[in-house]
Design a binder for these strands. Sequence first.
DNA 1: TCCTACAAACAGACTGTTCGGTCTGTTGCA
DNA 2: TGCAACAGACCGAACAGTCTGTTTGTAGGA
Lengths: 202, 202
Amino acid sequence: MPEQPLTSRGAATYQRILDAATEEFAQHGIAGARVERIVTAARTNKAQLYAYFGDKERLFDAIFLSSLERITNVVPIDADDLADWAVRLYDEYLRRPDLIRLATWTRLERRPAGHLVETHQHYDDRKLTAIAEAQAAGRIRGGDPFDIMALVIAMSMAWSPVSNVYAASSQEPDDVHSRRRDLLRECVRRATVPTDQDQPDR
Amino acid sequence: MPEQPLTSRGAATYQRILDAATEEFAQHGIAGARVERIVTAARTNKAQLYAYFGDKERLFDAIFLSSLERITNVVPIDADDLADWAVRLYDEYLRRPDLIRLATWTRLERRPAGHLVETHQHYDDRKLTAIAEAQAAGRIRGGDPFDIMALVIAMSMAWSPVSNVYAASSQEPDDVHSRRRDLLRECVRRATVPTDQDQPDR
DNA sequence: TCCTACAAACAGACTGTTCGGTCTGTTGCA
DNA sequence: TGCAACAGACCGAACAGTCTGTTTGTAGGA
């Protein structure tokens, strides 16, 4: 039975728990996260954590959903320039490696197949509509909008913190990043530009 | 102090442990895997597991390295047809979702940045040489061979069991898979085909 | 072909520790 | 002065890893 904090001091603690939990879960996953470490980092105690969030699983739910919101809002799609969108995603992964790690922990620990979240429509709808419109206007290639979205996101993650090849980090020199950005931009552009078969709206 | 099994019965047990551990680690990761479940699935006991592999971490090392070998050998690169290589990777993820999951657990639990394995050269060298040769012959676009490899692999993983968007599975109908294969093949081809600036060996 | 001896493989009880979650009492703000 | 927030001791379950005793396959001798 989670309860909301009732005072402003409580609200501040609530937020510190969220922040600390985001970092802890991003680093260690659900099974690996330690409640003890979270309350220490949040400068609070277990009683508060359990009063506000119920248990470890529901605490994860709370931080995961707000992380999803963030990544969707901070990097909105531009269906007329998917290449630029991919590059902005590349930069966001550098800025907040924890968010993409959280998503991947969810995939591995909770949802081995299918959509990552039950409410995927809530997150995908705007992107899919945008892609479909750009297709109708002949500005990007045909094909299932969902598949195109998945592919462009996958390309943006080539050097992400969950890459199976190489995980980039903000410590690397700038020119390495711009080299990757250039390649990414150019390849997404070429992959998504309309083909001969793609007729503008007839 | 791990010891090799000395009899053929022991060798069979050793192999059953490897198989059971591969599945257990792929499903639950290092922190989430249970030694008890592994020995039960392998129809053996803890004493054997610890005698052969030392501890949980070294057991993971053992199964992870053999999984890496498998994925490298079963789907060899064809630098002259990266699009087809990507499609073969797509199919391999469907066939053995556990291998790609193991790689991702390693990324999350062990290697948050940089290369996934210390001995990455051992696994990458052939691919990088193949790409460099294809570039020199003007059959694929220019750019850092390593980055191109990372990007093509990322594209092949758009619907993999570790996708942050949608994880495909072999249960889905064939036509869904062929639609994805077609899009993947076409987009990789377009992304990697030589540009105007790419001159064949002069 | 049987018997015996031995070492490897086996089974699972046991131990010490770690961890999620609860409970009891204390502090501090309004 | 009363209640929310706090601190951390405490509890029981779960777990990695060890230990003790049992079974099984095999090699060698008669």
